[in-house]
Design a protein around this nucleic acid. Structure first.
Lengths: 125, 125
DNA sequence: TTAACTGTACTATATGTTCTAGTACAATTA
DNA sequence: TAATTGTACTAGAACATATAGTACAGTTAA
């Protein structure tokens, strides 16, 4: 389901959170579906359950998931994602586009690339 | 010239590096211009010179600057920026656009936004 | 030449984050 | 009842970050 990279400088709980977020936005985990339990996922990845819980907390803060004690952790709806997350993404987008412009990457290139990526995802999903 | 945020979880050397990169891509520091010496900048920001040097090393790895022992550290040309940095930016761009699409942000919105940002920078610079 | 500056390279130490280990509790489910 | 769930702690190990101090070689200007 997920893979960890111990060479990567990023903390494990961030890798888990980002991996789960990716599974959600790609549709691999549809809204309402249950995520693996903290203990099950910790077992699969051979890491500590506390680390998984930390990832779930972070994912819940972003609004991508919600936890119900005794039941489990579930993927939320896109409209439940926090406004802070949206703003953060747009802020990062501005910075990246500005830097790419400085490096001479034209808007047409970016447009073409994004269309290609979108088509690829449509074909796969 | 730069400002640090100690609440921010990001390490100081990354904040310095990102801040300097931003000054370069905005044109505040033109290619060929000398960056402040590690000791001068450490004094201004009231931090350790080793931390500044680490930021310079990272900036040099990206290709945004080059150091000459005895002379100083200088802003490089856009074409000197490493291909790895370009690839990293495009990778991040893809991920952000995919997530924004999941969140229901249309391509027209993004296009309009980026044009507005570009116009704002043209007006300022 | 001298003196002050530059980047660079170390060692040592303190601090904070991350991760692990273990335990425990209340709610849910079979 | 028994197993599973999220959650909340404590304690300690391991690692990254930042500081402090020293040192060396190249450059620059007095």
């Amino acid at each position: 389901m997920l893979s960890l990279n111990y060479r990567d400088g990023r903390p494990i709980y961030e890798q888990v959170r980002d991996g789960l977020r990716r599974l959600i936005i790609t549709g691999a985990i549809p809204p309402g579906d249950k995520l693996p339990s903290v203990r099950a996922m910790a077992g699969q990845l051979a890491i500590n359950p506390n680390t998984i819980q930390r990832a779930y907390e972070s994912l819940e803060q972003e609004g991508y998931a919600y936890s119900v004690p005794g039941k489990g952790c579930f993927a939320a709806l896109p409209q439940d994602v926090s406004g802070r997350r949206r703003e953060e993404l747009l802020r990062q987008l501005d910075a990246i586009l500005q830097e790419l412009a400085y490096l001479g990457v034209s808007w047409e290139e970016i447009e073409t690339r994004s269309r290609r990526e979108q088509a690829q995802r449509d074909k796969e999903g």
